[in-house]
Design a protein around this nucleic acid. Structure first.
Length: 258
DNA sequence: ATGGCTTGCACCGCAAGA
């Protein structure tokens, strides 16, 4: 089973890329973020025609997350949950579902803007709520994968220019402490289980030729729980769609599971 | 040099992303 995460930066604009990538990547489960559309605009029929069932929660203009599941795999609609229970939030950032007995969580972590701002405070509150909820979710579903746009670069090697970024949004000590909190629950950053290229990133700024210069950050992650990690066979970032015409600024990240 | 692209929304400029 191959699982993936991809911030598509508007599913309306990127539907063609998503369909192409579904066809050529061989993925079975895809977590999407930044749909930027309301549920009535979700392209359920187009994805079904491509062989994928969808669960999603969207809103106008911003945010929105989905899980696409190859229709040969069982997905029980009764297991779908949206948002973080107990954390009141109009922003649609989390959806979870159980696929073939494995809990799949698609999350779009807040950007945070900059340390000291209201948006950064919201990010830290959201991270604290996620930590509490995912702890309970782990108890209930030992085989769990947390996939998404974390908007956190865990280490300096995940940043193209760590000196220039020191202390800034995406790399601040508070954000990295929250990431470490997830690791302390037993989660594994699957990307680092394997040998990887130097300067491997999942997001590149549209501006200043970010992709061409490989001036990026690794902020999209797939974390697996202790019971699931032994099933992880590989993890890689697929840079190919980032080079397509009118791309998302994020690349998909994939994990192959036994 | 706080810009630089891209998106959505609503108008012809703005907020937001990371």
């Amino acid at each position: 089973m191959k699982i993936a995460t991809w911030n598509v930066n508007s599913l309306k604009v990127r539907l063609g890329h998503v369909l192409d990538w579904l066809a050529q990547s061989g993925v079975d489960v895809v977590c999407l973020q930044e749909l930027k559309l309301t549920d009535d605009k979700f392209p359920t029929a187009e994805l079904a025609a491509a062989g994928f069932a969808s669960v999603f929660t969207g809103q106008k203009t911003y945010n929105g997350v989905a899980i696409l599941v190859r229709d040969t795999l069982p997905i029980d609609n009764a297991t779908v949950s949206k948002n973080i229970p107990g954390f009141e939030d109009p922003q649609q950032r989390v959806i979870a579902a159980t696929v073939a007995g494995r809990r799949i969580v698609s999350a779009y972590f807040p950007n945070g803007q900059a340390p000291g701002t209201e948006k950064f405070a919201y990010k830290l509150q959201w991270l604290a709520a996620l930590q509490v909820w995912i702890t309970a979710e782990l108890e209930r579903y030992p085989e769990l994968a947390l996939l998404g746009d974390f908007n956190i670069a865990p280490e300096d090697r995940d940043v193209h220019d760590p000196k220039a970024w020191e202390g800034q949004n995406l790399v601040s000590p508070e954000e990295r402490a929250a990431f470490a909190g997830l690791i302390a629950l037993g989660f594994t950053d699957t990307f680092r289980l394997f040998e990887q290229p130097e300067r491997a990133f999942s997001w590149w700024d549209y501006r200043m030729l970010g992709f061409r210069r490989n001036a990026g950050m690794r902020i999209d992650h797939i974390l697996t729980s202790p019971a699931l990690t032994p099933a992880v066979l590989s993890c890689h970032i697929d840079k190919v769609p980032r080079g397509w015409e009118q791309p998302s600024d994020h690349a998909p990240v994939t994990v192959e599971l036994k």
